[in-house]
Amino acid sequence: MEKTLTPRHLGFAMPAEWAPHAATWTAWPYDDEKWLGYLEPVRQEFAAFVNTLARFEPVHLVVNDQESEQDAKARLSGPIHFRRIPHDDCWLRDSGAIFVTRSSQEKAAPASELAAVNWEFNGWGGKYPAEQDNQMPLHMAGILGLRLFHAGIVMEGGSLEVNGEGVGLTTRQCLLSPERNPGLDEEALEGYLNEYLGINHVVWLGHGLEGDHTDGHIDTLTRFTAPRTIVTSVSSDPDDPNHRPLQENLEILQSLGGFRVVELPLPQNPIWLDDQTRLPLTYANFYIANGAVLVPIYSDPHDEQALQILRPLFPGREVIGLKSRYLITGGGSFHCVTQQQPEGRLWNG
């Protein structure tokens, strides 16, 4: 690592998701085969999500081809910028650039300056094709005309959660998996997170949800809702394979001190993609937008309970439940398909 060229050295850090956004980046689903025949209902849910999001902030919508662009334009309205970029899949949380900000030194300029970090993306440890997705940060930085820092190691945005005050959450299951960065231990990874995202203290949780092909991404488990408030998924069913790992994560969080920890139930009824594959249903995969929090729901008995838990945690924001019954067949939901672009003057250093 050349420390003189890292974001931390230049005063940049990743802000919390609730910091004001200039826009959100996401990508339109395509290829019915990839979606196992569910592309049409996936697009219906995705359109409802994007149209709701566009009520609160502009959207950069990545489209793969002419069919995708025409289909999206027929379903969507609002401040949406269409970006034709070839890509493998729609999970921009993991493939897209991660934005970092710093306080502006110019009195007449906006309060923050904006840059971005490019991490390597290898399809969640080589599970899926990722050659095109690995180029996504370069396209995003090129469109915006801003400086892109190259970290040089594998990292996925869904594996990280920050409070904007130097604390980050992640899981050992994901970051220490040998298919991502063999040879890098916790200390080395913490060094990269410090240099490129300004994370000073990493809280390591254990394992993620059964059926999660990302190997335990934090954004399906545990999220900050304020600098000192954490919401974490739990299962009250002792026979659920998720029960013990989630309880262990809860105990780690409760041992930290200085944080309020709020329990968030998993959906009551599991959904199976096939006889072998349980889908990683969770309410923690919400997306915090300007003025709103968009929460995945599944026509489950726990949907309303989850929304009632989350609403008081986001004063001043409208907490909205949106259907994700078909989107989850791809393994993720609203947080997985989004990447926030914070407000700030574009900096190209």
Rank of each mutant, 00 (worst) to 15 (best):
Y283C: 02
G157C: 10
E187P: 11
T277H: 12
Q247S: 14
L294E: 04
L256W: 05
G123Q: 04
G291A: 11
R8Y: 14
R325Y: 08
L310E: 00
Q340I: 06
G37V: 07
A226D: 00
P178L: 09
V337L: 15
E45D: 09
R244K: 10
L184H: 09
W91F: 03
E179L: 14
P137T: 01
G349A: 12
Q254R: 15
V50T: 08
S233I: 02
T338E: 04
D300F: 04
P245V: 11
L307N: 01
A188P: 03
C90K: 11
M136P: 01
S112V: 10
E106G: 10
R278A: 11
W347E: 12
N285R: 08
L184P: 06
W25G: 07
V319Q: 03
W119I: 13
Q247H: 09
G157Y: 03
S68Y: 05
Q339F: 08
L313S: 00
Y128H: 08
A284H: 01
T4Q: 10
G321A: 04
P245A: 07
Y298M: 08
E210C: 06
D300M: 08
L39D: 07
W35R: 03
S235G: 01
F49W: 14
V59W: 08
K73H: 04
D89N: 05
T170R: 05
P41Y: 03
G331N: 08
P301M: 03
S177M: 07
D133H: 07
Q135Y: 12
S235P: 09
